[in-house]
Design a protein around this nucleic acid. Structure first.
Lengths: 201, 201
DNA sequence: CCGGGTTGTTGGCGGGTTGTCAATAGAGCG
DNA sequence: CGCTCTATTGACAACCCGCCAACAACCCGG
């Protein structure tokens, strides 16, 4: 009666192991800043040898960037038909939907936009830019100005700027609690209408 | 005829040495991100032994935070009397001055506001918040609403949100070059006036 | 059931980094 | 000139990261 010795470790599919490590990294990088998280600890908490992290992600930095990319993925809010109406009405509906989405996923959203620190990091910067780009396009579409051609680039740049305010305002609402949801809604609507009106006029 | 052997290093006043290292750190952290700057190189470029950095700043991280503090609190933000006039005029003058300041110190400014992305560094976060706080108060003063009492906190929160847009817009102008200075000026003025009007009304 | 191949996984080595601390040496003073 | 004070150095120990050869879990054909 020889019992098979239990294997010391399980052999997983690459995708599975990758996801496991990534999840752990997301958690750790979420609660502490980059340098305060060592690959040693990351490996221990993932129940994995340190070398495996390098095998899957190459470098600690690349793993970090992977986490950022994942977090920056913006859930598709409101691509559905919005009620036709005046610009103000469409903007209001769009902002309302936007706030609902980030309210539901507040933890993830806050982690993603978490006020960045000092130190220009071209890689992170580029990822953020791409995310803002997508968000701006969605905004254009939602508001019903997707077809505009004249001054399109400027308009998109302004909307990207606007999204900077949206981030800061949502922090005031969800973190500092210095603004209510209604106040943020009003603030964003007023601002966006003003911006669009300026461009249109 | 024995010539005195030249001293291998000069002995400076603590404040002086501190400032010297700080200046070098500001430069290096400005052109590369945190982990890509080693204290070894920092020491070499400062013409100083590595241990001295720890002696003055304790830790690499503390030095880093010191740099952030210095960059965020630019005292000469032009709080001098602005010409009395309509709200629009005062806002326009204020924004113009703001843009001039960051244009002059663009490299420093861009490094300071960072990427606005993922990072979650509580220490840096706190410093940024304090800086935004001060900036908001200055804005209130500049615009001539310093004496307001009703809904003061909400107004300040909105101005902090607005500064999020100002940062994003200045990135569009100085980095991506998707907006001109005039466009940014117009964008910020329009927005700020709209916000203040909404609150006032 | 079993032996060999595939490949996911381990563990340790080497170079580099950081914080600490005793030893050293400018510089001012009597 | 010698003495003191303290700014500054240099080396040491711990740690961290990327690399890579060896190992073992798992699969599959016989």
């Amino acid at each position: 009666m020889t019992t098979e010795p239990a294997p010391r470790w399980r052999r997983l599919e690459p995708d599975e192991r990758r996801a496991q490590i990534l999840a752990c990294a997301r958690r750790l990088f979420g609660e502490r800043h980059y340098e305060a998280v060592s690959t040693t600890e990351l490996a221990r908490q993932s129940g994995v040898a340190r070398g495996l992290i390098n095998h899957y992600f190459g470098t600690k930095r690349e793993l970090y960037l992977e986490v950022v990319r994942d977090l920056m993925f913006i859930p598709e809010y409101a691509v559905e038909r919005l009620p036709r109406g005046t610009l103000e009405e469409r903007v209001a509906a769009s902002m309302d939907r936007f706030l609902s989405v980030i309210e539901r996923n507040s933890a993830m959203w806050l982690a993603a936009i978490g006020t960045g620190g000092y130190g220009r990091d071209p890689d992170v910067e580029r990822i953020m830019q791409e995310a803002d780009e997508i968000a701006a396009d969605r905004m254009l579409e939602t508001v019903g100005l997707a077809g505009i051609t004249e001054g399109r680039e400027e308009l998109r740049a302004m909307i990207r700027s606007f999204s900077g305010m949206a981030k800061a305002a949502s922090r005031e609402w969800l973190v500092s609690r210095t603004l209510t949801r209604e106040q943020v809604h009003l603030l964003l609507c007023t601002t966006l209408v003003a911006i669009l009106g300026e461009v249109h006029g």
